[in-house]
Amino acid sequence: MKWAQIRPEHGTTTAVCLLDERVFAFNRTLDDMVAEGELNVIHSLGDVENAGGKELHADWNELPFTRLLTRPGKILCVGLNFTDHAEEVGAPLPEYPTIFTKYSNALIGPGEDIQLPAESNKIDWEVELCAVIGASTRRVSPEDARASILGYTILNDISVRDWQGRTSEWFQGKNWDRSTPFGPAIVTADSLDPAEGLSMQCSVDGVLRQNGTTANMIFSAEEVISYISTFMTLEPGDLVALGTPAGVGLSLRPRQWLSDGQTVTCTIEGIGTLANTCRAES
């Protein structure tokens, strides 16, 4: 099942789902439904109807998608979590997940412009699989962490590389305003398994830059969530971005960076495509 959020031009923001090629809309936002745990118990047509879903006779791919979650409580990211990416940047494989944080000021939705800051011209792309937490989670095993995952979406971890490299902490290169696209949909965990090796691509103006697979993740989603839950409680709607495969601009020779007007397109098998155009900050 797929879930998303739409905002018609003259309407209100509304949760929608795709079930058996049929589109249903709800009279609530996806934020509210995730926070209240409603998505955890909607699996069938009967569940959709009991939750108030009304069928929209529309093409899912033509819907006016907007940001999935407006202000997730926590956005946690894993660095160097793909073997091929660690190799391309010359880093040893980590013994533990390398965790850094983002804040909601950085997030944008599908189709929104990536804001390129005036302070840098070394701005990079990173297609990432992102787990969406569906239940309060603390001190769980990797096996039990699977039940905590509501589903998966796409996150483009745009990185301001010169600022990221100023210190040993990456935070300042990862949190620029309106720099991190995510979406367009959440695919529920019961219909998507990263362990099977989902293909991941990122292209810039149609030129393929990253072409990887989740089979190359060092730490699985369950292992990452178990690790994080050891020291903090994860709550419904929290995001956990799981790292990027090889092909980032930092590792190309000569290095390649994003510029005004370029379009970055990220695709993950089973989820869909996330496309955003870069605009220089005025």
Rank of each mutant, 00 (worst) to 15 (best):
L274K: 02
H57E: 14
P194R: 05
P245R: 02
L242M: 11
I271G: 01
D144S: 12
V41M: 11
G206D: 09
V34E: 01
E223Q: 13
A4M: 07
V187G: 01
H43V: 10
D59E: 15
K54A: 15
A275V: 07
S120E: 09
L19Y: 12
G270T: 03
I268S: 02
G183P: 02
L80G: 06
G79W: 01
A15F: 02
S179F: 04
Q210D: 10
G270I: 04
R166C: 10
L56N: 07
V248P: 00
A135G: 12
Q201T: 15
H57Q: 13
S220Y: 07
V89M: 10
D84M: 08
H57T: 12
L80R: 12
V89N: 08
N81K: 06
E269G: 08
K74E: 11
S191K: 15
E87Y: 11
L242R: 01
I42D: 00
Q262W: 05
A91P: 09
T137D: 05
S179K: 04
F65T: 02
S282R: 15
Y103W: 14
Q172L: 15
E143L: 12
L39A: 06
P117D: 06
A185F: 09
C278P: 02
A51M: 08
S159W: 01
I133F: 06
E196H: 12
L155N: 00
R279N: 10
M217T: 07
D20I: 10
T233L: 07
W60S: 09
M232V: 11
N276K: 06
D205N: 13
A246P: 04
E269W: 07
G183I: 04
P72V: 04
V240F: 02
H85E: 07
E49L: 15
V41A: 14
A4I: 05
D47N: 13
L250K: 11
I42Q: 00
I75P: 00
T213A: 06
R146H: 13
W3S: 03
D162F: 06
T12M: 14
A106C: 15
G197N: 10
I149Q: 01
G46A: 14
A280G: 15
Y227A: 06
L80T: 09
M33A: 08
A86Q: 03
D84L: 10
L30M: 08
